[in-house]
């Protein structure tokens, strides 16, 4: 469990999931952020953790913003570009809020575990009670804080629940070093809560993985 104490770190961003990731990454590490958006997380990690950071971003506007900040970000696609990175090139490969938008999440995760000694994955939990409520009671595709787009204009094509993700990690033999879930207000859920509780009340899952020892 990560306690989000008031500190200079929490002054640096409003994204609580980013703060959780900053806490997971060691000082001076080599980090690849896949789907790095406008580079906010990479800049945070550079400023607070002194990392050697790289990024991949699909949108031209995102890449432009990153490069203007002096970040080493390439315009590219998680589905097609990860295969070109060498094994063990990074200490951490981060995929924040992007897994569900990839064409082949399993392959992406395999590449992350190959490229990095650690993988950090955050994703919106499709098992959250609001999602279930929308589907079960309203009979509509859910629109929530974590999933703000309508079904017809969402970039998300592969939704999963926290339990689905855990199952995929087990299938790939990935070890979970840390796992936490955040409520829709961004507060971490109790560490000792059972999986069903996380899966129902966690709006987001945040996982620190390590390649399993084969």
């Amino acid at each position: 469990m990560i306690l989000l104490s008031p500190s200079f770190e929490s002054d640096a961003t409003s994204r609580l999931d980013f703060l959780a990731i900053v806490r997971m990454v060691e000082q001076g590490a080599r980090v690849l952020d896949v789907g790095c958006g406008d580079g906010e997380l990479l800049a945070l990690l550079r400023d607070l953790r002194g990392i050697d950071g790289r990024g991949i971003e699909l949108t031209r506007s995102g890449v432009n913003a990153c490069l203007a900040k002096g970040l080493a970000v390439i315009q590219g696609d998680a589905d097609t570009d990860l295969e070109h990175y060498p094994d063990n090139g990074f200490d951490y490969v981060i995929l924040s809020q992007t897994l569900q938008a990839t064409r082949n999440p399993k392959t992406v995760l395999e590449h992350m575990l190959r490229i990095g000694s650690h993988a950090v994955v955050t994703f919106p939990n499709f098992g959250h009670w609001r999602v279930r409520f929308d589907l079960l009671i309203r009979g509509r595709m859910p629109v929530t804080e974590s999933l703000p787009d309508n079904w017809y204009d969402t970039p998300n094509i592969h939704y999963c629940t926290i339990r689905d993700f855990v199952a995929l990690c087990n299938e790939l033999g990935a070890e979970m070093e840390q796992a936490l879930a955040m409520s829709s207000t961004g507060n971490p859920l109790r560490l000792l809560a059972p999986w069903w509780f996380w899966n129902l009340f966690g709006a987001q899952g945040i996982f620190l993985l390590r390649r399993g020892r084969a």
């Binding site: 031209r60 890449v63 990153c66 315009q75 990175y85 060498p86």
Partner: peptide
Amino acid sequence: LVRALNAGGASVGFVE
């Protein structure tokens, strides 16, 4: 070029 630089472990930014 960018893919080769990445494969070589280089720090690279790229935009079209």
